[in-house]
Simulated scan of single mutants.
Amino acid sequence: MKNNLVQLQELGLRDYKETWEYQQEIFQEILDTKIRNRREDAQEHTKNTLLIVEHPHVYTLGKSGDLSNLLLSQEQLALKNATFYKINRGGDITYHGPGQIVGYPILDLENFFTDIHKYLRFLEEMVILTLAEYGLKAERSKGETGVWLDVGTPFARKICAMGVRASRWVTMHGFALNVNTNLGYFDHIIPCGIKGKAVTSLNVELGKNEISMVEVKEKLLKHFSTLFEAELETN
């Protein structure tokens, strides 16, 4: 029997490494349940969790990423009050920081559908539908995961990065939507390893000093629930 209940945890501003380790604990717990079910021919439900968080300034490099896409030395990172981690998601380098909504769905896709391509497209669609509520026409860019504006023009710019890991249909890592993000931190990397592509944020696109993070989160969660046919439960 499938379990479409998703435990929502809003972690506030949380250290990247601490959150990464927490993700891995939840991820491993789901894997252990699946392995136990198969070994013992049991029917224990696997849990689904969605973490919503902001991080202090941090750069993360995916397992297939190129370290040369980080343009800062260790000393310069310290001066920028930023940290750096090489991690086990897909994708290249990206930045996380205050004013950015980061979401980590740790789902057993066997509770929903067993299709990683569809999973990524649903995460993108959730962001596209959210931005549409602010009057922005966001799109996918062929061959490039994430959500973009003005695709196919010289003014193409990325507003949401994505990178996931999956094992036995269990997901971790996720998406990072720039809302009120300090875009200057992206100047110190080649974002996602793609040269010549700009990044943007919701407040820049709308010409406002600050957008309500609470409001954006509410819209994202609404579309997440609809797309995944999930029932969100707050801890």
Score class of each variant (00 low, 15 high):
144 E>Q: 14
167 S>L: 12
232 L>R: 09
96 H>T: 12
222 K>S: 02
92 D>W: 00
75 E>V: 14
211 I>T: 05
227 L>V: 10
216 V>F: 02
118 K>P: 03
4 N>T: 14
24 Q>F: 07
181 T>P: 06
170 V>M: 01
137 K>V: 11
9 Q>H: 07
42 A>N: 06
105 P>Y: 01
166 A>L: 07
129 L>V: 01
5 L>Q: 12
33 T>E: 02
51 L>S: 10
63 K>H: 08
59 Y>T: 10
224 F>H: 09
162 M>Q: 08
122 F>T: 05
135 G>W: 06
84 F>I: 13
75 E>R: 15
66 D>I: 00
46 T>P: 11
153 T>H: 03
20 W>N: 15
141 S>F: 08
219 K>R: 14
231 E>F: 12
158 K>G: 01
93 I>F: 00
126 M>F: 02
73 S>Y: 09
227 L>R: 14
127 V>Y: 03
30 I>S: 08
135 G>S: 09
136 L>H: 08
111 N>P: 07
218 E>M: 10
15 D>S: 06
106 I>V: 15
146 G>W: 02
113 F>C: 05
146 G>M: 09
122 F>W: 14
181 T>K: 04
84 F>M: 10
233 E>Q: 13
30 I>P: 15
96 H>N: 13
6 V>P: 00
116 I>Y: 01
216 V>D: 02
147 V>P: 05
190 I>D: 06
225 S>F: 03
124 E>A: 03
91 G>S: 07
181 T>M: 07
64 S>Q: 08
165 R>F: 00
173 H>Q: 09
67 L>T: 06
47 K>Q: 15
58 V>W: 08
43 Q>S: 13
74 Q>C: 00
116 I>K: 02
149 L>H: 06
58 V>D: 11
151 V>P: 00
27 F>A: 08
120 L>A: 06
67 L>W: 00
145 T>G: 14
130 T>R: 04
96 H>L: 12
183 L>W: 11
98 P>G: 07
181 T>W: 05
84 F>Q: 11
15 D>K: 01
125 E>Q: 15
156 A>K: 10
39 R>D: 04
106 I>M: 03
193 G>D: 00
147 V>L: 09
25 E>H: 09
210 E>N: 12
184 G>S: 15
134 Y>Q: 12
21 E>W: 05
128 I>H: 00
75 E>S: 14
136 L>S: 10
91 G>I: 05
138 A>D: 10
166 A>D: 04
76 Q>F: 03
96 H>F: 08
165 R>K: 13
144 E>T: 03
209 N>V: 02
46 T>K: 06
217 K>T: 12
145 T>Q: 11
201 S>A: 07
114 T>Q: 15
30 I>K: 07
76 Q>P: 04
212 S>L: 11
191 P>F: 02
193 G>F: 00
59 Y>G: 03
11 L>V: 04
18 E>C: 06
132 A>D: 13
230 A>V: 12
205 E>L: 03
169 W>S: 00
54 E>T: 10
153 T>Q: 08
186 F>E: 07
100 Q>A: 05
143 G>S: 09
